[in-house]
Design a protein around this nucleic acid. Structure first.
Lengths: 149, 149
DNA sequence: TCTCATTTGAGATTCAATCTCAATAAGAAC
DNA sequence: GTTCTTATTGAGATTGAATCTCAAATGAGA
């Protein structure tokens, strides 16, 4: 977490009349210090592992704030859990997801953005956001035989 | 529900050693007879409304079978519920979703499919399926002012 | 330092989906 | 048609991520 990131977070809290608490800062720090796409529960456990006591409720609540004010990105791959990632490298990107091992890879394709704009325009939709996920088998899982139970 | 659709369902059940029960047929019929993107609960209620008694459990279980054997399409728009739609017009399509009123519109864009293939190939993923959803405001919601609570 | 609205933590609650299990029914064999 | 075996059904219990509740604690402006 860079100082400028922290300042951005502080500004949001101030602007929205939310208080700067140690718990909120720790949650934000934890999110920023990993490039994985993690669930709230994983972030909660990572904090506990580092002996930082923040309740599960507070982790969920803070993730909501971070998402609400666009300080983190969040995605849903259809398993009923939100996965969060920091927004530091700020590029709009989509995801490739391995259906066997769960590995998530990011990709950027500017061509698709143009097409999306065209589609939205054609249907008179004012585009706000999109979800674009490609599910398949990663190289390693293609090469690994399925183990017998 | 056309006869050929029903036959396809019967074939799947037979091939998979599953039994053809009146409940399963009714659920399938209900799904086929609507072009909406409905939740299992909505399908369950629609059946009750027509005085067809199928339990909630059986609706959920049958939807699983239909999805498993590719007789229906299912989507997740991030609200924790699966929405089902029949697969009768068999075109691969994506969705435009209004974030205010929930209207779902389908669109087809063959250009994107090519790009998806290229991306998967580049990352050595063997593509299985994709999710592509555009969220925004539909024309009507753009024109309707937000009502005051 | 005082004050007060906000936040926290722990546990309760929600809700879609899944599981359990006794009763029922499909459908193969005869 | 009858019998037998196994799958299916229905009702309610359970699961699990997320949200809510409320008393106690705390941030931050005065």
């Amino acid at each position: 977490m860079t100082d400028s990131e922290l300042e951005k977070f502080k500004k949001v809290l101030k602007d929205e009349n939310l208080k700067l608490t140690p718990q909120r800062v720790e949650v934000f720090r934890e999110v920023c210090n990993s490039d994985e796409h993690r669930e709230a529960e994983e972030i909660y456990l990572a904090l506990r592992k580092r002996d930082i006591n923040v309740s599960r409720s507070t982790v969920y609540r803070t993730m909501d704030i971070l998402y609400q004010y666009d300080l983190v990105q969040r995605m849903d791959i259809g398993d009923g859990k939100w996965r969060y990632e920091h927004w530091l490298n700020c590029h709009q990107h989509d995801h490739l997801i391995c259906i066997r091992c769960g590995t998530i890879v990011e990709f950027i394709n500017t061509q698709i953005e143009g097409i999306q704009k065209d589609v939205a325009e054609k249907f008179n939709y004012q585009l706000v956001r999109h979800v674009h996920q490609l599910f398949g088998l990663c190289k390693q899982c293609q090469d690994t035989p399925v183990s017998v139970k």
